[in-house]
Design a protein around this nucleic acid. Structure first.
Length: 340
DNA sequence: AAAGTATTCAACCGCTACGAT
DNA sequence: CATCGTAGCGGTTGAATACTT
């Protein structure tokens, strides 16, 4: 015997909520409080299922919801949290007061995932958009929120368009530099993410690429990298009361002893091993077997990230067949590049 | 101005975890 | 322990809309 449906579907309204329905729901919850979603629509006189009511309340009607565009800070937070938590939108939303999981999920899917996907393979392609069919112009489609907001005023619109183009140039410049760097370092090829188990590495790869794309390595001093790995951000990721993270000269992440508490070396957030060095605990971030070596200064961390592909394979993928498969993927990527 | 296309986002759907019985 | 009901989560869908041609 199958389970009874969560709500009586017959005769219930679906689709967009009307203003009247919103008012009824909001008024009812104001009087009776949240909960009992199954009985709520009946009691409130709504022709909706409880699930729909709950969703409408949580995602739209709650008083503490933040309206308006996602700020740069929030966007940065989402990116970092997603790199750590994956698609656990409710958890991510928990770190962003006033934002719902649905909103964040939508924002990710429409704004951020594509950006991430562009760099997912770690193979950054330098493409002259002007040489593409149509001169690389977009063929229709709704503008992003930022552009939409700017389009409210004609002058602002033009200004925003300029900024947009500037951003494109910035990305292209970063890609160009990345390409040059690749030519300089034959082995500096990042690994394509091939499974969920490499999500952390993928996230790292994304961040690397995004940091690159945002001008860390090429932009002038006026360009502030919105996606830079900040100490505050990482500390926030580790939860309240966590010590600050510092990036060591050798690429290891280091907990500063200035933090309010000492991190249990056995249960670091994502690090596999912690070792004592003086009065500091140093985390060697394994990152799912991907070795990351950095340059000599933490400031240049992203600039000088080197993904030692061969070494990774030896260490992380002992299985010969799997290794060969991944090597083929990389070769495939390179072949694709050659034929661009 | 109309048609075509891309994008956004509210809402739905299916699944699962968890508490109650 | 098994079953049921509920809440919550993440994936997906489709209408609305913006933009280009």
């Amino acid at each position: 015997m199958g389970r009874a449906p969560c709500c009586e579907k017959v005769g219930l309204k679906k689709g967009r909520w009307t203003k009247e329905e919103d008012e009824i729901l909001a008024r009812y919850i104001k009087e009776h409080g949240e909960g009992s979603w199954r009985s709520l629509p009946k009691n409130a006189g709504l022709l909706r299922c409880g699930k729909s009511c709950r969703l409408r309340w949580i995602n739209y009607l709650r008083a503490d919801l933040k309206r308006g565009n996602i700020s740069e800070e929030e966007e940065e937070m989402i990116i970092k949290l997603h790199a750590t938590l994956g698609n656990r939108w409710s958890l991510i939303a928990g770190h962003l007061p006033g934002r719902t999981d649905n909103e964040i999920k939508n924002y990710w899917n429409s704004h951020l995932s594509r950006r991430a996907a562009d760099f997912r393979d770690g193979v950054v392609v330098n493409v002259d958009l002007s040489k593409l069919p149509g001169g690389g112009k977009r063929r229709g489609g709704r503008a992003s929120r930022g552009i939409m907001a700017a389009s409210k005023a004609g002058k602002e619109k033009k200004m925003k368009q300029k900024e947009k183009d500037k951003g494109k140039n910035k990305v292209a410049e970063a890609e160009k530099q990345e390409q040059e760097r690749k030519e300089d370092h034959d082995m500096a090829v990042s690994t394509p993410a091939s499974s969920d188990s490499q999500q952390c590495a993928t996230a790292q790869s994304e961040e690397q690429a995004q940091a690159s794309a945002s001008g860390v390595t090429s932009a002038g001093p006026e360009e502030e990298d919105p996606l830079a790995l900040s100490e505050e951000m990482m500390s926030a990721l580790l939860g309240p009361g966590s010590p600050k993270l510092e990036v060591g000269l050798d690429g290891s992440c280091m907990y500063s002893d200035s933090g309010p508490s000492v991190v249990d070396r056995e249960s670091g957030p994502t690090g596999d091993v912690a070792q004592e060095l003086g009065d500091k605990a140093i985390m060697d971030w394994d990152l799912m077997g991907l070795d990351i070596s950095t340059g000599t200064a933490a400031d240049d961390m992203w600039d000088s990230l080197v993904w030692d592909y061969a070494a990774d394979m030896d260490m992380a993928v002992p299985d010969g067949g799997h290794r060969q498969q991944q090597e083929e993927e990389v070769m495939s990527d390179l072949f694709f590049l050659d034929n661009m």
